[in-house]
């Protein structure tokens, strides 16, 4: 009954939102067309151009890692503080692996290790090519972490070297901020793209954006791995 009421309330709210937006002509007006809006500028470049205003071929990336790079810095901070929280609440000093309730057989162990490399490579690829193709640091980092998760799930004795992840996490985050501050010194603004943009579509183009994306990828990967480790271990009582 309670759940049903909750569903009803949620449905009601949804209908309400739809209704209120239906009458809203402004909302309907800008369905697809972005002409004349601020956002028009975001997608304004062509493949092969030299030194366009904003470098990456991938428009989404140009928004995420360039126009709104500061937001992205904020987002990785959200992830950072979340993983800190997990570590604070779950992390203890002496830890052992959580009992998963089964023992992996030989095939699973070896197979997962083979698969691990492939997933890791995909993750790295997605991260590095973030400014050219769909993907980027966040999904790439998540893929890297998922490769770790695979190892954790497939082997009930496996533990990664968490200390390494910590260092990676810290260094990647610090470098991100430092690149931002470097922008302040080498150019005029924080997080400004102070390197040469190159030609749109090349792997080495778009200035600092691939750099940032790699850092994001590393940071996200190591943070999520850390979280996984925290979830899959327990304190020795």
């Amino acid at each position: 009954m309670k759940n049903f009421l909750a569903l009803l309330a949620a449905l009601g709210l949804g209908v309400l939102i739809i209704l209120s937006l239906q009458n809203n002509t402004l909302f309907n007006e800008y369905g697809e067309d972005v002409t004349g809006r601020d956002s028009e500028e975001y997608g304004d470049r062509e493949y092969g151009e030299e030194n366009p205003a904003s470098g990456p071929a991938n428009i989404v990336t140009s928004i995420v890692a360039d126009f709104r790079s500061f937001d992205t810095l904020g987002e990785i901070t959200v992830l950072f503080v979340s993983s800190l929280g997990v570590a604070l609440l779950l992390g203890g000093t002496k830890q052992k692996r959580l009992d998963l309730g089964f023992h992996p057989n030989f095939m699973l162990r070896i197979g997962s290790k083979a698969l691990f490399g492939i997933i890791l490579m995909t993750g790295v690829y997605v991260t590095i090519h973030g400014h050219l193709t769909p993907g980027g640091g966040f999904p790439g980092g998540a893929m890297i972490a998922s490769s770790m998760l695979l190892l954790y799930l497939a082997d009930d004795t496996f533990r990664a070297k968490i200390k390494g992840f910590k260092i990676l996490e810290s260094v990647a985050g610090s470098l991100y901020v430092l690149i931002g501050i470097a922008g302040l010194f080498f150019a005029d603004y924080f997080l400004e793209n102070f390197l040469n943009n190159g030609v749109v579509g090349d792997l080495l183009s778009a200035g600092i954006i691939p750099l940032i994306y790699v850092l994001i990828g590393l940071k996200v990967g190591s943070e999520i791995s850390g979280v996984i480790d925290n979830f899959l271990t327990e304190e020795v009582v």
Partner: peptide, 21 residues
């Protein structure tokens, strides 16, 4: 916490009463 959510919904319905309903 669901009480809070309930109040949020209720208040919104109340405030939007004249506007869209």
């Amino acid at each position: 916490p669901e009480i809070t959510v309930f109040w949020i919904v209720a208040l919104m319905v109340f405030l939007l009463w004249g506007d869209v309903l």
